[in-house]
Design a protein around this nucleic acid. Sequence first.
DNA 1: CGTTAAGTTGACACGACTCAAAGGCGGTGG
DNA 2: CCACCGCCTTTGAGTCGTGTCAACTTAACG
Lengths: 245, 245
Amino acid sequence: MPSPLVLKLAKGVSLDAGDIAILEELTRNPVRFEARTDLIVEGEKPTHVRLVLEGIACRYKLLRRGRRAIVAHLLPGDFCDLHVTILGQMDHSIATLTLCLIAEIPAQKINEVISSSPRIARAFWWATLVDEGTLREWLVNLGQRRGTVQMAHLFCELYWRLRLVDMATADSFVLPLTQEELSDTLGMSSVHANRVLQQLREDTLVVMQGRTVRIPDLERLQDFAEFIPNNLHSTPKTDAKPANG
Amino acid sequence: MPSPLVLKLAKGVSLDAGDIAILEELTRNPVRFEARTDLIVEGEKPTHVRLVLEGIACRYKLLRRGRRAIVAHLLPGDFCDLHVTILGQMDHSIATLTLCLIAEIPAQKINEVISSSPRIARAFWWATLVDEGTLREWLVNLGQRRGTVQMAHLFCELYWRLRLVDMATADSFVLPLTQEELSDTLGMSSVHANRVLQQLREDTLVVMQGRTVRIPDLERLQDFAEFIPNNLHSTPKTDAKPANG
DNA sequence: CGTTAAGTTGACACGACTCAAAGGCGGTGG
DNA sequence: CCACCGCCTTTGAGTCGTGTCAACTTAACG
């Protein structure tokens, strides 16, 4: 079974067998982290490049009055700090949200890999740009939409991103986040997150069974959420059929 | 007089005379664009790499109900679309806000420059990471703070970023943006932006004289705004004295 | 079966949006 | 030099979304 890194990068850049072998090699000997564990804390200087193989992690910042802002979700196949070694110190922290398997790759190893294959170098750039695009999408979401639409948009994004690494079925995915964690990413109170979720369920835009989120009508949810799949740069351009069902 | 690109990059990475000459070369023959002109529109595929030399531009997305979300301010020294040629198409548009001088650099030229000097390559990476950090900072600003604090935070950011390219004095800078443009970046109505500005002036956190913003007490404004200069990765680490007064 | 974390509910306060209209300011042309 | 015009800024009033506080219910786990 291919690593999520290969699954993801292959959707943006075409890789040959040699590239894939090199990438798989990077993900050997992952380290296991319990849920809610800091991987690196604001102010530290990262020494390794980290890569999520299993589970969900997040970038976050702590603010006054005990508030926490989650500024990114790190899913399988996502780098935590590719090239951040260039900056003096972390401007945010990274923590696991669920139980995670993380590959820890020496920064030097990354540089070797980049110079060994221009396709891999390109793939890493692509991943960086996709992350940046996601960040802009979040910015629009937080700035311009109200609670229910925000939450719906987040669900659409998670659906497609998880789908990209074969972690979602055609109409559902597992979401192991608490309402408080959702509220920290959308910048709303957890009470309001709860009410927003109730609203979405009442309108049957989503159906929640335990920790799995089912989307009865993806078109309808995406329309409600003003969600444009293209902006993730990794979703099908014309139809909604993913590469690996 | 050095180009803003050199001024900016030199604060993150040490460059030698040869690097500087190469960078200056990139900024020859800029093109002039009137205020409120689209440079590139969502969906297009960029052919050139653009660089702001004078004026202020922005990244933006158009949304339903005629709303516009500004997701980044592009100041002198900022790249518009470094490496975005890797992605299929633009997921946002770029437009000037004021009269601008823009350098248009063939993508191939960028690649040549990067391979000619590892220091320049590093400097470009650094700039990309700084942009990403700014994006995260905006995310926190939009998600977690209320109107007046948001606006104060934006002013702090603009102050330091303009200072970086010698476009701000010790306690003031020129802000040629309308209240509507400010409101589009902070995700609030222009009416509310107006009231928020009145509040800041009443508290003498800022003094506005025409288009110049004066900050009587930077410490006080930054404290009010929860602004942490370090997060721009380009401001002094310990004291608040900039490199070029 | 007790304990703890997560989810749910209600009441109230306030920030922010909307609509609508009036005032200021800088341009342009007569 | 003044009148006009358009764009930006400012104001007011009413509505609605969201935050806060506090208590209660449910689920998870040993």
